Amino acid sequence: MLDSPWRADFPGILALAGEGQTYLDSAATAQKPQVVLDALLGYYSGGAANVHRAQHLPGERATRAFEASRLAAAHWLNAASSDEIIFTRGSTESLNLLAYSLEETFSAGDEIVISALEHHANLLPWQQLARRKALKLVVLPLDPLGAVDLHQAATLIGPRTRLLAVSQLSNVLGRWQPVRELLALARAHGALTVIDGAQGAVHGRHDMQAMGCDFYVCSSHKLYGPDGVGVLYGRRAALAQLRHWQFGGEMVQQADYHSASFRPAPLGFEAGTPPIAGVIALGATLDYLGGLDAAAVSGHEAALHLKLLAGLAARDGIQLLGTPHVALASFTVDGLHSSDLAHLLSEQGIAVRAGHHCAMPLMNSLGLSGAIRVSLGLYNDGADLERFFSALDKSLELLR
């Protein structure tokens, strides 16, 4: 049956099941364990206060909890120091922060390299930076399996490359990308490197010191934590190249009417009141995840994924996008529109995602207007997939 031993930890999953809903959209946002809800309520009910700015007890207590989450994030990613962790409002803001803060390091004609599978969040900030600074945006093609083609990457990453920004795990194709090889190609030319870990961070622990990227971004809401919080890791030397991009609040060291000086990272890039409750709750999330048996989680996800892929392969007319490694599968059905199929699945209580998945250029390159995506969390079980396949069969019968 592929039962999940962690399902009872997620009240949202239980509530949805009570409404007859089967949640298979965790790649968009994950449900939250009870410890996250407890942390949010604890912060607000115990007396909310701003961080870093007050000498009173509520402010000191909030600051300690906030900075404890920074330590937890640094430990989770094996950063060299908690000073290498900047809290943002999500992966999208982290990537925009980098695009604006690094802008002055580029000159006309320099090249930024991305891949053909990028989420809009790791495409548009670089696209718009290229437009502002007359840079060349280089797009790495994919191989037939849905991974960046390393042979072509070796010819496209060159002496004019100033930055490489690629996803660790595709949110559409579900395939781990050859990040280490791409990082090595970029480093050989002295380029800065950015890894979009919004999907990858959910599946396994990733060691920043071993990986060797300059920057890594991920989002709390996909990692079973609260929304409105992101983590931007940056190597100390790479962080020193960033220029401040938002101004006000605690990021200021000294200010008069005509000039100001600013703090270095991390506080220098956390202007204004941060998402305090969310950051504290992210710390609780990481503590929860760190207490799980990682091998058991990974084995459960792998078994569910195999069941998902086998069920899709057993049905006529279903075309899988790429060859996914983990946790999700995107597919189309011959002769059917994905939105029609998603509508019928939704009417039967099956929550999946349909559309371009914030990757329009990838979909266009595949000749598709959209696809259905089923994505799994550690709380899903075999019964969820059985309900999905039953609803899929009924939907296909109706539409055909």
Rank of each mutant, 00 (worst) to 15 (best):
N50H: 08
I85W: 01
Y233T: 03
A277M: 10
A8V: 11
H203E: 14
S26N: 06
G370S: 13
I318D: 07
H203C: 13
D207I: 10
V138P: 05
L232P: 05
D287Y: 01
A351S: 15
G322R: 02
H325K: 08
L173M: 14
G230D: 02
R236E: 14
L37S: 02
N122W: 00
S220R: 09
V297G: 07
E93K: 08
G225W: 08
L308I: 12
Y257W: 11
L378G: 08
A371T: 10
A351L: 15
R187S: 06
G249Y: 11
G174E: 11
V279Q: 02
L385V: 15
L192Y: 09
L341S: 03
L185H: 00
A72H: 02
A296Q: 07
Y100R: 10
A281D: 00
R387F: 11
H300N: 10
S220L: 10
A65W: 06
A265R: 02
I85M: 10
A68L: 02
G18L: 09
A15S: 11
G228K: 06
N171W: 01
A79W: 02
L145N: 03
A8C: 08
D9H: 12
I114W: 05
D149V: 01
E104R: 13
P178F: 02
Y288D: 05
E386R: 14
Q34V: 11
L77S: 08
V279E: 04
V297T: 05
E104N: 09
P274F: 06
G197F: 07
E347S: 04
L376C: 13
I86C: 08
S261K: 07
T273F: 00
G317T: 10
A147I: 04
Q128N: 13
L308E: 06
W245G: 02
L289M: 13
D3W: 05
V138H: 00
R61Q: 07
A302N: 14
A354F: 10
F215K: 01
A255L: 15
G42T: 04
Q21C: 15
Y224A: 02
Y233G: 04
I86M: 05
L286W: 06
H151S: 04
